[in-house]
Design a binder for these strands. Structure first.
Lengths: 116, 116
DNA sequence: CAGTATCCAAAGGGATACTG
DNA sequence: CAGTATCCCTTTGGATACTG
């Protein structure tokens, strides 16, 4: 791998990567996205069940951030009692490639570390 | 995007993604990798200069973790005073695809959030 | 059901000084 | 140069209880 581009471009790339990481690096972000993606639409309490170890406080906080970043859309259904549904936005769905790559790499990495 | 695979596969994917994120999600990890990659071989104090805001304590800690995860190779050169050189391992270089994707996505995301 | 609020312990991480 | 050590403030996040 050679990285023979210009210094300024390099700085810009680093900023862009950091932007992505800021959005994704919450402890539960990707798990949440993955859960919503898997079920297409998913309610708060269901996501809570999907993800081992997450608390309602954390789920609430992370979902709020995902919404702010326009990755997730929140819809309140007027049922009794109130139900809230989460789904990925079109923008959120563009994360699929990254998630796939992270999955592949994670598997490779595990082999590398444990020795093949 | 449809996610119509089996539940168990889904759990495995989530674990793999999490493995990757654990390795990469330190505050400075990707910046460090990117810096070493850019210069191919890079010394401690140079990386310190490359990355805005990082402290020697953090750089030392993150490099240690990257080494443990076999992404980075550390070489002590017997100069006066001692010089230490860091470079990516073959395994570390396999991150290139992910970094590229994160770069692209980060740019897209910025447009999405700021409004095009 | 879908969150908030509060308390609190643990981890993160900056600043500074020191060492081989 | 390449780190360690220490101090100490800030952030994170779990447990629990409460609300519309």
């Amino acid at each position: 791998m050679t990285c023979n581009y210009l210094e300024k471009e390099h700085k810009n790339e680093m900023r862009a990567v950091q932007d992505s990481m800021d959005v994704l690096s919450g402890k539960w972000k990707i798990a949440i996205i993955s859960s919503i993606c898997y079920y297409n639409k998913r309610r708060f309490s269901d996501i809570l069940d999907d993800i081992d170890g997450i608390s309602n406080k954390m789920l609430s906080k992370e979902l709020k951030e995902l919404e702010l970043n326009k990755l997730v859309k929140r819809t309140v259904l007027d049922s009794q009692p109130v139900t809230v549904q989460y789904e990925l936005t079109e923008h959120g769905k563009t994360l699929q490639t990254i998630i796939n790559n992270l999955t592949e790499w994670g598997i490779k990495h595990r082999k590398e570390i444990l020795g093949k």
